[in-house]
Design a binder for these strands. Structure first.
Lengths: 105, 105
DNA sequence: TTTAATTACGAACGGCGTAATGATC
DNA sequence: GATCATTACGCCGTTCGTAATTAAA
């Protein structure tokens, strides 16, 4: 699984279809379709019912929405945490380097 | 950024070095080194001070630990949420399919 | 000299776009 | 026929391992 795939999944959910989602992601429909397929294969469950040319959420898909948003959010937070250490740029040198258990072994 | 990279990062932190971490991940040291480099480049900050042959956390690296664990955890939770819908396997068919705003446009 | 980390290079994999196919409205 | 989704195929970027290099203990 991959966060990028979750973002794609959420885009399909939020835009109500592969076509709209692909446009919003600046991605081609085939690529999006492949990505979703790969995610479904990885999870072992279909996330959408393909009804003709319409994509409808399965129960598994519905269950994924909330934790997917959470995962995306937590990754953004991780990036923000690093950036908050310094406005941007370079390597700080504040905390004193401590040897990592130089003792046993 | 990528969750895999965060897992690698956490492995280095938890095992106290690239070598140990690489072994634990069943990965070669060079590949791990590259992955960490890529992560640092992506974040715009060094995560470790390279003191001789020792890797010591920078402030940015320290700041990343907690949110990284959170991100990894949330992704595991996302997978678990899908699996919990059915023991494993196939596509459920419970929630009725509703058309996605067939109206305007 | 032994151990830890990096750099160099080549191979394998994955993600993307374009083109072509299937299917529904 | 027009639109939405899927396969087919080729390309490029990324990731990995092996081998060679650097550096510290």
């Amino acid at each position: 699984m991959d966060v990028r795939q979750l973002e794609y999944f959420l885009a399909v959910v939020d835009h109500g279809g592969f076509n709209r989602a692909a446009s919003a992601l600046y991605l081609s429909q085939p690529s999006l379709s492949q990505a979703i397929r790969a995610l479904e294969r990885d999870l072992g469950s279909d996330l959408f019912h393909r009804i003709g040319r319409r994509a409808v959420l399965t129960d598994a898909g519905t269950a994924l929405i909330a934790p997917a948003r959470e995962a995306v959010r937590s990754l953004q937070l991780a990036r923000a945490s690093v950036e908050s250490v310094h406005g941007l740029r370079g390597a700080g040198w504040t905390s004193r380097p401590r040897p990592h258990r130089p003792s046993s072994r």
